[in-house]
């Protein structure tokens, strides 16, 4: 049946994710890092985002990851957990963390792929722990306080601007 478990990001987990990726940005020497849902929505970001169309980047990466999972299945793998794009001055390192989250790292020549890869591995357990906590919280907390208060009038006014 249709999975009704929405992904809800609370302040506490947001701050904890943010601390982890802020720290990752420093120790890996990357330019920009973000956590993405597999449906292409950015959860948390850190680093230089000026002049970067993050929303488009996020949707393209989610599409690329989805296509890569499709490729993996065709050759008998469950997934390819890492994607790497190398450019002249910028590189993108993409890591599938679990069934819902993707970590994306943009870095330049000022750091190395080896260091980025190593540091991604070191933060994975922390991100996983926060995510597990988030899942538990989503089971017990509901978003009813937000959603129950939506009136039909609010819905009618969605496009009133």
């Amino acid at each position: 049946m249709y999975n009704k478990t929405d992904l809800i990001l609370y302040d506490e987990e947001y701050q904890r994710f943010k601390e982890v990726i802020d720290n990752f940005l420093l120790i890996s020497g990357s330019k920009y890092v973000f956590l993405l849902s597999k449906s292409g929505q950015v959860l948390v970001e850190s680093g230089q985002t000026e002049h970067l169309d993050v929303t488009s980047l996020a949707s393209l990466i989610a599409g690329s990851v989805a296509a890569t999972i499709g490729l993996a299945k065709i050759v008998g793998e469950s997934e390819f957990s890492v994607l790497f794009h190398e450019g002249e001055s910028s590189n993108i390192y993409i890591s599938l963390l679990n069934e819902r989250l993707i970590l994306v790292v943009l870095f330049s020549k000022t750091t190395s792929l080896g260091l980025v890869r190593l540091k991604v591995k070191t933060i994975q357990p922390s991100i996983q722990a926060i995510y597990q906590n988030l899942l538990k919280k989503m089971e017990t907390h509901t978003s009813q306080s937000l959603l129950e208060n939506i009136s039909d009038d609010d819905i009618d006014k969605l496009f009133d601007f």
Partner: peptide, 15 residues
């Protein structure tokens, strides 16, 4: 699956 982000106060929906 909607993403409801309490920190940035955003609801994302995929159509």
């Amino acid at each position: 699956m909607p993403l409801i982000n309490y920190a940035s106060r955003v609801i994302n929906l995929k159509i």
